[in-house]
Computed example of a mutant assay.
Amino acid sequence: MKQEERIAMRSIKRLSNGISREMCAAFGSGMFSGAQGRTLHFILATHQKEDLFQKDIEEEFGLRPPTASALLKELEQRGLIRKEPVPYDARRKKIVATEEALQYKDCVLSGLEKLEQKLTAGIPDEEMQVFFTVTDKMLKNLAQ
């Protein structure tokens, strides 16, 4: 396909599909869905650094509140997270990784790190910065 015939949406969708397939392979045997793995990775990476709330998950992954709520409910039902009240705001509940989730920490963190390395192999930092600049602009366009 010629460069001028390429459509951004198609390329992004193909990339998204490829990442999803790789994530399923990385977590194998149905351990986690791609969305669960990414979310658990984010929770485990921020574990003990700061309080984490549903709003943070929504912002990190560009999710709508019902989608984030359903995803967190799945993780909670699997015993990987729990929600705890915070003393400074009775309306808010922070997301906490359970001991069971911490058992998966190395697997999840290394699986996604390997995928990131595979995805960005051979791409210089300067090109990655252009990629991030362009995707940030696209996200901003969609938000308008």
Rank of each mutant, 00 (worst) to 15 (best):
I57M: 03
A90P: 12
V96Q: 02
E74M: 11
G79K: 07
L44C: 01
R78N: 05
E113Y: 10
E58L: 01
I7N: 13
V130G: 04
Q54M: 07
Q77M: 10
E60R: 15
R38W: 00
I95E: 02
G28P: 03
V96E: 04
L109F: 04
P65M: 05
I12T: 11
S11H: 15
G18N: 12
E100D: 13
G111W: 03
R10T: 15
E113W: 08
K73I: 05
G37Q: 02
F42E: 06
T120R: 07
M9K: 13
Q129N: 12
T120I: 11
S33Q: 03
E99N: 13
G37D: 01
A35Y: 03
L40V: 01
T133I: 04
R6W: 08
F32I: 05
L102R: 15
E59Y: 12
K114I: 12
R6E: 15
R82W: 02
K94D: 07
L80C: 05
S69N: 14
L72D: 01
T135I: 12
R38C: 00
Q3C: 09
N17G: 13
A8F: 13
Q36F: 04
K49C: 11
V96A: 03
F131W: 10
M31S: 11
R64M: 11
L44G: 02
Y104V: 03
M23G: 06
L115F: 06
F61E: 00
G62V: 00
P65A: 06
L75I: 05
I19D: 06
R14W: 09
A45I: 06
G111K: 00
A8P: 07
R91C: 07
A8E: 11
L119H: 07
E113M: 10
F32N: 00
E84Q: 12
L80Y: 01
Q36L: 03
E126S: 10
I12F: 09
D56N: 14
R78C: 05
Q77A: 11
I95N: 03
Q103I: 09
L109N: 02
R38I: 00
I12Q: 08
K94G: 05
K55F: 11
A68P: 03
G79F: 03
P85F: 03
E76S: 09
K118E: 14
H41A: 07
G62W: 03
D89L: 05
L44V: 02
V86I: 11
K137P: 04
S11G: 15
D125P: 14
A121Q: 15
P87D: 07
A101D: 00
L102V: 12
G18D: 11
V134T: 14
S20Q: 15
L44D: 00
S20V: 13
L112G: 03
I7G: 09
G30D: 02
P66S: 10
A25T: 13
A90W: 06
K105H: 08
D106F: 10
